[in-house]
Write a protein that binds this DNA or RNA. Structure first.
Length: 419
RNA sequence: GCGGGUGUAGCUCAGUUGGUUAGAGCGCGGGUUUGUGGUACCUGAGGUCGCCGGUUCAAUUCCGGUCACUCGCCCCA
């Protein structure tokens, strides 16, 4: 059927789905705040260079996944494919590079043009944190610890494994890169087509190839750990000590490379096996060169981002608060009376639903469907005696209550039930 | 961008080895109960059988294309 539908890879966040998203962002925000990270937001689009340079022109994200367009003024703009570059740009734009450290939490939509799959959308949502201006290992550790706490509050930490690696500093990485290319060139003809291409563009990416033939070749490939200089090795050791100190388990994965060019030193991913091919639930690392790339000077950074859709699929979503009272009037004037009486109840924090029509049976049915705890009925009989009928939907008991006392009566009744 | 699977009512799915009125359960409307929900019974509405084309006397069914969804690859949260 030729239905009117949302564009491919996008989806509506109807209340039930939205509740999951809210749960994820709310708990992440709360945890972030407890670490001193405060919420911020950047525009969903930026000048194209903001992403093109730091992420790497050859990265897949930039070369084939961005939504880029020219606006009416002739500027090339890009819908953000991730949050870090924009957050760093915002810090630079606002002159905050003089005030270190900066600690940000953000949540919002991201856009990547790719084939949708389970846990992978063209418009998807991420939460993330960025810690700027802290070059030492305690920064890496804090950010990872924060991420771990978010996952554990969401009840997904037990289903995830923290993979940890270091890419070393620029010097170490270049030395390793050279050794790796040298080794792989010797096996060039046996590499997969994709990896042969990557050999020129980004050889490190070959390390996490899923091709069986590539994997065989990689068994004897040089190990990055052997090429770390003293600074890089010390940094990584310190990160691990911090994590050990707070008892966070991890697994060293020397093949964990990450797709974006701006990473150096620590990289990590929390991975689950519960989401098919999209196992990465939260990923990040250190990006000390990024701020300089955007023209903001030499400022260190570490952070992570996590997919809200993926997290929501893995966590138990608490059900919304129940409806406390539904107000049913059997005619316009009675509905008007209840309309007024509902206000002080809501001001007391009760959740009060309106019966929008006068057919009592139908309204009762709706009260049942939305799981209302009580129903207040005002009809001609009651109105004539200045009372209203208060019915408990759980046990079916109903009492007449004077209209003048109704507000106080309902508040008392529901408060009592809540204790 | 590449490969596999799927597409029948609001939802979950049967079905027609090509044939006249296409079904079920749930949900929805009305009623038994003209001021009382959750149970039960009765009853009703709702379908271009994704779209376009081909084969055929006849296509929802066969064939081709296309679109969408879905799973995987690439890549990534």
């Amino acid at each position: 059927m030729a239905k009117l539908q949302s564009p491919r890879g996008t989806s509506d966040l109807l209340p039930e789905v939205m509740a999951g998203h809210r749960h994820v962002t709310d708990t992440a925000k709360t945890v972030s705040l407890s670490f001193g990270f405060e919420e911020m937001a950047t525009p969903v689009f930026e000048f194209t260079e903001v992403f093109a340079r730091p992420l790497g022109e050859t990265s897949d994200v930039v070369s084939k996944e961005t939504y880029t367009f020219t606006d009416r003024g002739g500027e090339s703009l890009t819908l953000r494919p991730e949050g870090t570059a924009g957050a760093v740009r915002a810090m630079i734009s606002s002159g905050l590079t003089q005030t270190m450290p900066q600690k940000y939490f953000y949540a919002g939509p991201m856009f990547r043009y790719e084939r949708p799959q389970k846990g992978r959308m063209r418009q998807f949502h991420q939460i993330g944190v960025e810690l700027l201006g802290v070059p030492s290992a305690i920064g890496d550790a804090e950010v990872i610890t924060l991420g771990h706490m978010v996952l554990s509050r969401l009840g997904v930490a037990d289903h995830c494994v923290l993979n940890l690696n270091t890419l070393g500093d620029t010097e170490s990485r270049q030395a390793y890169r050279q050794a790796l290319v040298e080794y792989l060139n010797g096996h060039k003809d046996n590499l997969s087509e994709d990896s042969q291409r990557r050999l020129h563009l980004n050889p490190l990416r070959i390390l996490d190839s899923k091709d069986a033939g590539d994997k065989d070749i990689l068994v004897n490939a040089p190990d990055l750990a052997d090429y770390l200089n003293a600074v890089s090795a010390d940094h990584f050791a310190a990160v691990r000590e911090y994590l050990d100190a707070v008892n966070i388990k991890y697994q060293i994965n020397s093949r964990l490379v990450r797709g974006l060019d701006y990473y150096g030193h620590t990289t990590f991913e929390f991975i689950t096996d519960a989401l098919g091919a999209q196992g990465t639930v939260m990923a990040g690392g250190r990006y000390d060169g990024l701020t300089a790339m955007l023209g903001g000077g030499d400022i260190a950074g570490v952070g992570w981002a996590a997919g809200i859709e993926r997290l929501a699929m893995l966590s138990d979503i608490p059900s919304p608060p129940p409806v406390d009272v539904m107000m049913i009037g059997t005619s316009e004037p009675h509905m008007a009376t209840l309309f007024q009486l509902a206000m002080p109840l809501r001001e007391q924090g009760l959740r009060v639903e309106t019966g929008y029509a006068s057919n009592l049976g139908k309204q009762m049915k709706r009260a049942d469907r939305i799981n209302a705890g009580h129903v207040v009925i005002l009809g001609d009989d009651e109105a004539a005696r200045q009372v209203a009928m208060v019915r408990s939907m759980t046990d079916g008991h109903q009492d007449e209550v004077a209209i003048n006392d109704l507000v106080e009566h309902m508040i008392g009744r529901i408060r009592q039930r809540q204790i």
